[in-house]
Structure formats: structure tokens, C-alpha cells
Amino acid sequence: MGSVQRALRLLECVAEHEHGAPAKQLARETGLALPTAYHLLRTLVHEGYLRRDKGLFFLGEAAERLSDTAAKQKRRSTVVEALAHWRDLIGVPVYYAVYRDGEIEVLCVSDSPGSPAVEEWADFRETGHAHAIGQCLLSQLDEGARRDHLDRYPVETITPYTVRDDGALLRRLERADGRTPVVERQEYALGAVCAAIPVTLGATAATIAISLPAQQGDRLLAAARELQAEIGRMPGSLAISISI
């Protein structure tokens, strides 16, 4: 355990020196005996956590991978906390999704026993035309990307309320203004209504969405507008990497 602690102290010390540092300096700053520091530095270089160049030590690829992983976990935690906050505040399930590499990806869902999420009974990726999440994401794409998506995942009847054909869907998407929540009522799942709010994440199409039982459909627009207002008050929580 002592060796691990000393090695971690060296890693932290190297991380503080953007332009590298020699072994003697690292030993002095960590309070380690020079032979101990040399031994640990050689081991860390061998394992890829450090690299040595012209007598100076820098973070290696293995340490950088650890750093990237920690950053991703922190960003995901931020997303989870934001969605849970909105779930409890508004009393609805909250979803976060993006359009990445030609696919709809629901990255996070926050629900509760009293407000359960809509069951994914038909693959969300293949039924984007039928649910608010997919419609909101597709509305943010250009015409070519929309048609490419529909060529791969054509419109199909999911419920009696589903949009009937590509043309009808494309006309609906063209009417979306990028500010108003996209709403669907029982198009994906009977007994459920949904609203999705477009979110700007650089060039990535993203959305935060909610759902309600159909019998509470009169709450949907008000809840969506409340969520939209809350998102506007918390811009930092939405600076979300699509890599989570």
C-alpha cells in the first residue's frame, strides 16, 4: 500500500508540471528519497503511466486514459443529477438523448416508482418517427440526414395514432422551429404522451424529454414549458459531452 501511495504522489506531482520535471525535482517535491523516486518512476514509465523525454517525466498514455475516464464519469454524474432534479421538481420521468453517427441514442433516463418511464417495447432507434425524442432529434437534422435516416428506418405504424408516411412526418419536422417542444400523443405507446425539447450541444442534435400517462395529457405542455425554463436556468449542467 505504501508503494502505491508513493507512486500516486509522483503521478500527481508530474501532472502539476505541464512541461515535465526531472527525477530530482519530483523526489524533492514529494518528499521521497531519490533512489525510491527513481525506482517508482522507472516502474511507472514501464507501465505507461509516465513517459520520459530528455530527462523529464510527463504523464503517459495510461494516465491520460484514466483522466479521460474520470472526466467522463464526472460529466455523466452531472447529467444524472440534473435529470433527477427535474424529475423531482416537475414530477415526471426525464430523458436525455442525442443523435450520433446516424442513430438515436437515449443516454440517460430518470424516473421513479410514482412516475415510471415509458417502456421501450419497440426499439427507440428504429421508431424515431413515432416518439417525441426521435421527432425532436430528426427535426434538428438537415433534409439529407433526415431522408437518410428514413431510408434506413422507414415510417411504420406503431399505434393507431402514429404518423402515416414519410411525407407527413417530413412536413411535421419542417414546421418545428427549434424553440417549441415537440409533442406526440400515443404515437409510440398507447397510454403515454411525450414532449421533447431541443438542446444545443455544438453540432450535435440533442434533446431533453418528458412523458406522462395519457390521462394526464392536459399537464404535458405546462410540464414541458417548466422543464424548458429550468434548462435555461442551468446552462452549465447541459454542457454535456456526447461521450457519456
Rank of each mutant, 00 (worst) to 15 (best):
residue 59 L to D: 12
residue 144 G to I: 02
residue 200 T to F: 01
residue 212 L to G: 12
residue 232 G to V: 05
residue 9 R to E: 15
residue 17 H to R: 09
residue 157 T to W: 03
residue 48 G to M: 07
residue 13 C to Y: 00
residue 64 E to R: 15
residue 27 A to M: 08
residue 130 A to M: 03
residue 208 I to V: 15
residue 33 A to D: 14
residue 199 V to G: 10
residue 221 L to V: 14
residue 227 L to H: 04
residue 118 V to F: 01
residue 17 H to Q: 10
residue 179 R to F: 09
residue 142 D to G: 06
residue 72 K to S: 13
residue 7 A to M: 14
residue 206 A to T: 11
residue 226 E to Y: 04
residue 161 Y to R: 08
residue 107 L to D: 01
residue 224 A to G: 09
residue 15 A to C: 03
residue 117 A to W: 00
residue 56 L to I: 00
residue 12 E to M: 06
residue 167 G to H: 05
residue 84 A to L: 12
residue 34 L to I: 13
residue 22 P to Q: 06
residue 22 P to N: 11
residue 164 R to V: 04
residue 21 A to R: 10
residue 93 P to Q: 06
residue 93 P to W: 04
residue 140 Q to G: 05
residue 241 S to N: 13
residue 108 C to W: 00
residue 38 Y to P: 00
residue 82 A to N: 09
residue 180 T to W: 07
residue 164 R to T: 14
residue 200 T to H: 12
residue 144 G to E: 13
residue 133 I to T: 12
residue 162 T to M: 03
residue 202 G to T: 04
residue 103 E to D: 14
residue 58 F to N: 10
residue 158 I to C: 08
residue 127 T to V: 05
residue 37 A to S: 13
residue 110 S to G: 05
residue 28 R to I: 00
residue 225 R to K: 13
residue 1 M to W: 05
residue 71 A to G: 01
residue 43 T to G: 10
residue 43 T to Y: 01
residue 191 G to C: 05
residue 150 L to D: 03
residue 214 A to M: 08
residue 6 R to W: 00
residue 29 E to Q: 12
residue 207 T to K: 04
residue 84 A to G: 11
residue 125 R to K: 14
residue 12 E to Y: 05
residue 54 K to N: 11
residue 55 G to H: 06
residue 3 S to V: 09
residue 124 F to C: 02
residue 183 V to E: 15
residue 126 E to V: 01
residue 220 L to D: 02
residue 184 E to R: 15
residue 196 A to I: 04
residue 225 R to L: 15
residue 63 A to Q: 14
residue 161 Y to A: 07
residue 133 I to F: 01
